[in-house]
């Protein structure tokens, strides 16, 4: 008889689980807010992703972000629906961009920069998928200014909240 394989969760696993739970709660809460256009929403879960990125590094942030996409979609009954793929694509482009942006000099670029860049990467990835797959028409770009404004506004606000949370932790 072979020994049963025991998988022990280490501190990092527990951290990822805790942060992912917080991100999922924010996603679910946010889903209750009425929105005029799919894609125009605060993206509060990104606060958690940024927090994890700046505290514990990119790979834990990627775990939290992807767990959040899958679990929130599952809970909202959206798993493998178009909205799920938009969300997943947005998250993947964001993570790709953050992997590079996290190397920006911290003295000059704080959480707000990362948050705004991440918001634009998110909406950019979603728009590309929507253009290629869901609405294959050039007219879709007519919505871009709305998404760009949303990314600017909520990217800045989420970045400020992230900066505040990091500051509170340091004190």
């Amino acid at each position: 008889m072979t020994e049963p394989v025991l998988i022990r969760a280490d501190a990092s696993d527990h951290r990822v689980a805790r942060y992912a739970a917080a991100a999922i709660v924010l996603s679910i809460a946010e889903a209750a807010i009425p929105t005029p256009l799919p894609g125009v929403k605060p993206g509060l879960a990104n606060i958690i992703v940024l927090l994890v990125l700046l505290r514990h590094g990119w790979s834990e942030a990627a775990w939290v972000a992807l767990l959040r996409v899958f679990a929130a979609s599952l809970l909202l009954g959206q798993l493998f629906a178009p909205g799920f793929f938009l969300s997943l694509t947005g998250t993947l482009t964001t993570l790709a961009l953050l992997a590079a942006a996290v190397h920006l000099p911290r003295r000059w670029f704080g959480p707000v920069s990362l948050s705004v860049l991440a918001a634009f990467a998110h909406i950019g990835g979603q728009m590309l998928l929507a253009r290629v797959w869901l609405v294959p028409h050039e007219g879709l770009w007519g919505l871009w200014p709305v998404f760009s404004a949303t990314a600017t506004l909520f990217g800045t606000i989420n970045g400020l909240i992230t900066a505040k949370l990091l500051q509170d932790q340091r004190q």
């Binding site: 920069s113 705004v116 860049l117 900066a163 500051q167």
Partner: peptide, 15 residues
Amino acid sequence: LLLRPGDYAVVLAAI
């Protein structure tokens, strides 16, 4: 005060 110099540039560029 939470904003760093580059943050202003990024936000202004986004606007």
